[in-house]
């Protein structure tokens, strides 16, 4: 128990130091811009299909759950509001963040881990290239930007999916769904979700880069690092979710 606690403290401390290092390099503008472009394409554009699919089903699930209440109280006019509120503020960022962690965070940890065990990182150091400025800073920046943009798309897809399932399952017209949505929700509801997306992106980036670049022990080590990275990302996501929810009420 104590040793587990010590391990957790060590990992959190190392991840925090990495965050500081990345922050300093980012402020000084010292990172590889071509790598940033490549990462944005690989992390953002290529995750679009899975994020859109997730969002579509999330919209459906939220309409079904809101529908249970709506049907009980007969308040069909509140369906768009209920489903929209939950999707924008909470469930959208959470599920899309978790999917992003699986798609991009795990992939990033695997890639960096493979580079570490095949001594590519040491190779960069031998060429006097700072692996953090060259590999990690662009990836961190790309993940924050990518998740922010993906959530914008995801929210739109989730709400369209919600409207579609609302009409199909509950017989609520599109116009009524969107009026109920537009009349009751403010820009603040959307922006809380977007703040969450940016913070989740940072959390996923730092934990996957940290676990990816500290791999030891060949192929099994890479597998373990990916496992640790997604678990740490999920923990970081729920903790920061709670923090942001309380701060931005």
């Amino acid at each position: 128990m104590i040793s587990t606690l010590r391990d957790i403290c060590r990992e959190v401390g190392a991840a925090y130091l990495l965050l500081l290092h990345v922050g300093t390099l980012l402020l000084r503008g010292r990172f590889d811009r071509r790598e940033l472009g490549r990462s944005l394409a690989a992390m953002g554009a290529d995750s679009l299909p899975i994020v859109a699919l997730t969002a579509f089903f999330t919209g459906g699930i939220m309409v079904i759950q809101a529908g249970i209440f709506v049907r009980r109280f007969g308040a069909y006019g509140l369906l768009g509001f209920g489903a929209g509120y939950a999707t924008l503020r909470e469930v959208g960022p959470l599920l899309i963040g978790l999917m992003f962690s699986g798609r991009v965070g795990a992939n990033n940890a695997a890639e960096l881990g493979t580079m570490t065990v095949t001594e590519q990182i040491d190779g960069l150091r031998a060429l006097a290239i700072d692996p953090i400025a060259f590999l990690i800073v662009p990836r961190v920046l790309a993940m924050v930007i990518a998740l922010f943009c993906l959530l914008l798309v995801g929210d739109a897809v989730a709400l369209s999916g919600g409207a579609l399932f609302g009409k199909w399952l509950l017989g609520v017209e599109f116009s009524s769904f969107f009026h109920s949505f537009a009349d009751n929700l403010k820009l603040a509801d959307l922006s809380v979700g977007l703040v969450k997306a940016a913070v989740f992106g940072l959390a996923i980036a730092i934990s996957s880069c940290h676990f990816g670049s500290s791999v030891r022990g060949g192929a099994p080590g890479v597998g373990r690092a990916v496992n640790a990275a997604v678990v740490a990302s999920a923990l970081a996501i729920v903790l920061s979710d709670q923090l942001i929810t309380v701060l931005f009420k």
Binding site: I50, M99, S101, G102, R103, A106, N107, A109, A110, E111, G113, T114, V117, T118, G218, A219, P220, G221, V222, G223, V226, N227, V230
Partner: peptide
């Protein structure tokens, strides 16, 4: 090891 990383990622997603 690259293959293990890829399959772990695919499993999560």
């Amino acid at each position: 090891s690259a293959g293990v990383g890829r399959s772990t990622t695919r499993a999560v997603i």
